[in-house]
Design a protein around this nucleic acid. Structure first.
Lengths: 340, 340
DNA sequence: CGTTTTCGTGAAATCGCTTTCACGAAAATC
DNA sequence: GATTTTCGTGAAAGCGATTTCACGAAAACG
């Protein structure tokens, strides 16, 4: 897409006009507009006045060319399949965008397959066309590692498997799971089953850890039979609930790694003649639209998704300022509805 | 956020090097790289070879400054409240991004309140920092009208209330509604109730129109008592179903303007001792996660959301090329599950 | 065959901002 | 009071493309 003609802009003011009107040099205009402290306060005032008067707005392309800073932060989303169907991506991107915009930075959306280290997106990032990048997925992290080595400020969403040279943001999955089980314990449930997510995923791992820790700490029944392996799907929820029921006659609650599985589990329980929460309580994870609109209302663990985005953006900004950034773990909150 | 230092880039090749290596002028390099046809084929080959050899990648900031084209298309989302919680935004943005990227354009995300005509976002758009904009909401269209007057290429998502100077993309809401009612008619249902969305919204209007047209054309019962006014919420679905039941003893199906209300209606029907679809069939609209994960599976009208995004992007590109673009209406598809 | 068009090409001017550098004045040092 | 530092400032040189303009060669014309 090249060769089109840009809509002509009315002749917008430039530094030249501001400089003339304020009676200073263009260099000083630049200093004032970029917050350089070493400018006489009278001159600062004069420049600001001229800027207001002329309704000046900086030309970002020119600034980018001269400074090498684009003012752009890429939000990179690996476009394998259902990406972006999930409201998670929208919510986190929203959080990112909000913080960046407040800081005069812009959000560039990069949705593309990242499998290839030499894909257009990969090249683009390496080329310095953005000042930093936030990765919303990190299946393949070879690209990320490479970019990190090139000193491109980077933040990743989700805990990586191994220690890594980049900072990340994540929800306190273990803590959220713990809180869910704790709620069940407080309500008097003794035999709490758990349906895992896809355990190759660190979030699924952490939720399992939280569940196990809670059972131990709170004196609930502990048993391998109380854990069913799932993969986030409704079918896994159904199968998991059936298995848990079969192996644990005294089962009185099921905690699922996400809402979809929880709804599947509820369906299976009802199919088996169990009432929810009368016979078996159920808790999900994510507090998605599904949980909010299910009937009976699904108790679920809510992540602060927009918060993750905002933190990620703040970390990028700090990184740009040259500060050392450390990873952030955000707390989850249990949203209590009818199923537990 | 100003004053940070950009990660220094290894000295990337420029036109100067390409020109030297290819034995042509920089002007010719530019011509070749921008697809100017009037260049000797030998020279074109020489330039391309040099480009490959040097691994040249264009500096977008420099190009933007010189040409006045930024290569950026803004996706503008009015950030009032729950925006972006809805997977709709993610899906449509994904579609936009895909098409733009294929055309070497980039997607700039602008999430901000648009109430104020002089808000930063509004100014930004007027300033020519993007080559075009796609609006995903158009409550207040005074801004859009103003931008259109300034010849900023523009596409809007959703049918506007009045005729407008800009092109839009939308789903065939009326057609989708018609198809749903037609399906009910084919299955032998005679008395089909309808729960509207918020009728200040054109999509809600069009769905109602489709329902009414289908009832008339297909010989189904027509009555004011068969239409309940809703507002997209679960509560509206519940209230609507109760009202329809009360006023129509022979009611055998309910078509709802969205899935959330459909699920509410189902809950109300079951509460009233009616089985779904045994006693009353139900169809929703959107084919959302809710429909896909509900139990029993909710029959629903699916919009091609990513398609809307792709069309919008194509229209912007056409507009950039100077072509006259016309609005696009995309067909909907009925996804049949268990409730009808 | 002389004259006018058309074509492809390169030199050079921009685009608007940032940043280095040098310089004089003021402040700090001894 | 002489000398060294520090400060604020403006001139000017980029940043890396695009685009106008003029020019010679080739093609078309009469």
């Amino acid at each position: 897409m090249i060769g089109y003609v840009a809509a002509k802009q009315k002749n917008r003011p430039t530094y030249a006009e501001i400089a003339k009107l304020a009676g200073v040099s263009e260099a000083t205009v630049s200093r004032v507009l970029n917050g350089d402290t070493k400018v006489d306060s009278d001159r600062v005032a004069a420049v600001n006045k001229a800027v207001d008067q002329l309704g000046y707005q900086k030309n970002r392309a020119a600034a980018a060319l001269a400074s090498g800073r684009t003012g752009l932060i890429a939000v990179v989303i690996d476009d394998d399949l259902s990406v972006f169907q999930d409201p998670f991506w929208g919510a986190i991107t929203n959080g990112i965008s909000k913080v960046l915009m407040e800081n005069e930075m812009q959000t560039l959306l990069l949705v593309a397959p990242l499998d290839n280290l030499d894909s257009p997106v990969a090249q683009y990032l390496q080329r310095g066309e953005v000042d930093g990048a936030i990765f919303l997925q990190l299946h393949k992290d070879s690209l990320i590692k490479r970019l990190a080595k090139q000193n491109l400020p980077l933040v990743v969403n989700g805990t990586p498997h191994t220690s890594n040279p980049f900072a990340y943001v994540d929800s306190d999955n273990a803590g959220g799971a713990y809180a869910a089980v704790e709620h069940l314990a407080e309500k008097g449930f003794k035999t709490v089953g758990f349906i895992t997510g896809d355990l190759t995923n660190t979030a699924a791992e952490q939720r399992l850890d939280g569940y196990l820790a809670a059972c131990k700490k709170l004196g609930l029944k502990e048993s391998k039979n109380l854990v069913a392996n799932g993969d986030w799907s409704r079918e896994a929820g159904i199968a998991g609930a059936k298995k848990l029921l079969a192996k644990n006659p005294d089962l009185d609650a099921i905690f699922c790694s996400n809402d979809v599985m929880a709804l599947g589990a509820i369906a299976a329980l009802q199919e088996a003649g169990k009432s929810v929460p009368g016979d078996v309580a159920v808790i999900g994870f994510d507090d998605s639209y599904l949980a909010q609109n299910s009937h009976p209302g699904l108790t679920s663990v809510r992540q602060d998704i927009a918060g993750l985005g905002m933190e990620a953006a703040k970390m990028i900004l700090a990184s740009l300022r040259g500060e050392k950034v450390h990873s952030e773990i955000l707390p989850c909150e249990l949203v209590i509805r009818e199923t537990a």
